[in-house]
């Protein structure tokens, strides 16, 4: 955690608060909302349908959820940028902050904790204390080993970050649904796709 603050020279504690206040304001006053349970139930019906369609081959279900998320992420990023008008993040630390405090907040009204930075500062984890996708969910025994129930989130992050020219690997390393203590989502930056950054940026 301390590493993240060190590597962002111009993000003092004051500006951190302001990103939170900025996101809270967008969530509270500028965003149309819908019943979270309808969202949870809809996602549940998607996952359970996939489990049936793929005859409980959970590896395939994981992949399909990831793919769905990827498609969503490529579209969702436009909504995020239109809604926030935030500029490009100058570091991965800043990215992690924007993802957790801003993106998760204004779409799902949760703020995962950022932590577990790799020594080379190119990977971090998001710890989801709350996960609106998996409220009311208990995995059946056969699914508990292999299924990453909320895998769609990985795809969303992958797709969204790719659209702002960051090539990342995103995957779950633990999930409370599987009996783990935490729900941890790992984001690893492979490279910044410099060639694809639109001309005219600083």
């Amino acid at each position: 955690m301390s590493a993240s603050t060190n590597s962002v020279p111009n993000s003092s504690t004051g500006s951190k608060k302001s990103l939170k206040a900025f996101s809270d304001d967008i969530w509270k006053n500028k965003t149309a909302k819908i019943n979270a349970e309808l969202f949870t139930l809809t996602y549940g019906s998607i996952v359970s349908q996939l489990c049936t369609d793929y005859e409980r081959d959970f590896v395939k279900v994981n992949n399909q959820l990831f793919l769905m998320g990827y498609n969503i992420g490529m579209r969702l990023i436009e909504d995020f940028l239109a809604r926030t008008a935030l500029p490009r993040c100058e570091s991965l630390a800043k990215t992690s902050e924007v993802v957790s405090k801003c993106a998760f907040k204004i779409f799902l009204n949760v703020t995962p904790q950022v932590g577990n930075w790799s020594s080379s500062q190119d990977a971090f984890s998001l710890f989801l204390d709350e996960n609106p996708l998996s409220d009311f969910v208990e995995l059946p025994m056969d699914a508990a080993k292999e299924l990453w129930y909320s895998n769609i989130l990985c795809g969303v992050l992958k797709g969204a970050l790719e659209m702002v020219q960051m090539d990342c690997d995103v995957f779950f390393t633990s999930d409370v649904l599987k009996g783990d203590q935490t729900t941890e989502l790992r984001v690893k930056l492979n490279r910044v796709l410099k060639d694809e950054i639109p001309a005219g940026e600083d």
């Binding site: 965003t31 909504d79 008008a85 490009r88």
Partner: peptide, 16 residues
């Protein structure tokens, strides 16, 4: 889905 009296009543920076 963008609510508020004027969505862009706040300052924003053009990044290009």
């Amino acid at each position: 889905s963008f609510l508020g009296p004027d969505y862009f009543n706040d300052a924003f920076a053009s990044w290009n």
